[in-house]
Simulated assay, not measured.
Amino acid sequence: MDATLVLGQQGRLVIPAEVRSALGLAPGDRLHLHLSGRRLVLERQQDAAAELRGLAAGVPGSRSLVEELLAERRQAAAGE
């Protein structure tokens, strides 16, 4: 589905009714916006959170990404 949006004077966008309906959006829903290169990506917050959980699903519970990051930072700082 494609739609054309017009940016209003105060930077507001109106999402067309057929797009809101297709996505199940209702007034008051919160959306997440991020930049991908020069593109704007707008998605429901629960979809963004589900995608992040999916990315982390392959990380074993015994692995600490925080500890790995700290170790990398310590190693980089020691090399300076």
Results as ranks from 00 to 15, higher is better:
5 L>C: 09
34 H>P: 05
75 Q>L: 13
79 G>Q: 15
11 G>H: 02
40 L>V: 03
44 R>K: 08
15 I>Q: 14
73 R>A: 08
24 G>K: 01
38 R>Y: 10
61 G>V: 04
72 E>Y: 01
32 H>P: 15
60 P>K: 02
63 R>W: 06
45 Q>V: 15
23 L>C: 09
27 P>G: 00
20 R>F: 01
15 I>V: 15
72 E>C: 05
39 R>P: 06
46 Q>C: 14
16 P>A: 05
60 P>Q: 08
20 R>M: 01
1 M>I: 12
30 R>V: 08
29 D>I: 01
65 L>C: 02
51 E>Y: 14
32 H>M: 12
29 D>V: 06
5 L>K: 00
19 V>E: 08
57 A>L: 02
62 S>I: 07
10 Q>N: 11
78 A>E: 14
16 P>G: 03
49 A>G: 09
6 V>W: 10
26 A>Y: 06
33 L>G: 06
10 Q>M: 10
78 A>N: 13
64 S>K: 00
35 L>K: 08
61 G>P: 02
36 S>H: 13
28 G>W: 01
46 Q>L: 15
35 L>C: 13
9 Q>W: 08
76 A>D: 13
75 Q>Y: 08
42 L>Q: 09
49 A>Q: 15
21 S>R: 06
10 Q>L: 15
78 A>I: 05
16 P>V: 00
26 A>C: 01
64 S>R: 00
55 L>D: 13
32 H>V: 13
75 Q>N: 10
43 E>Y: 00
31 L>M: 07
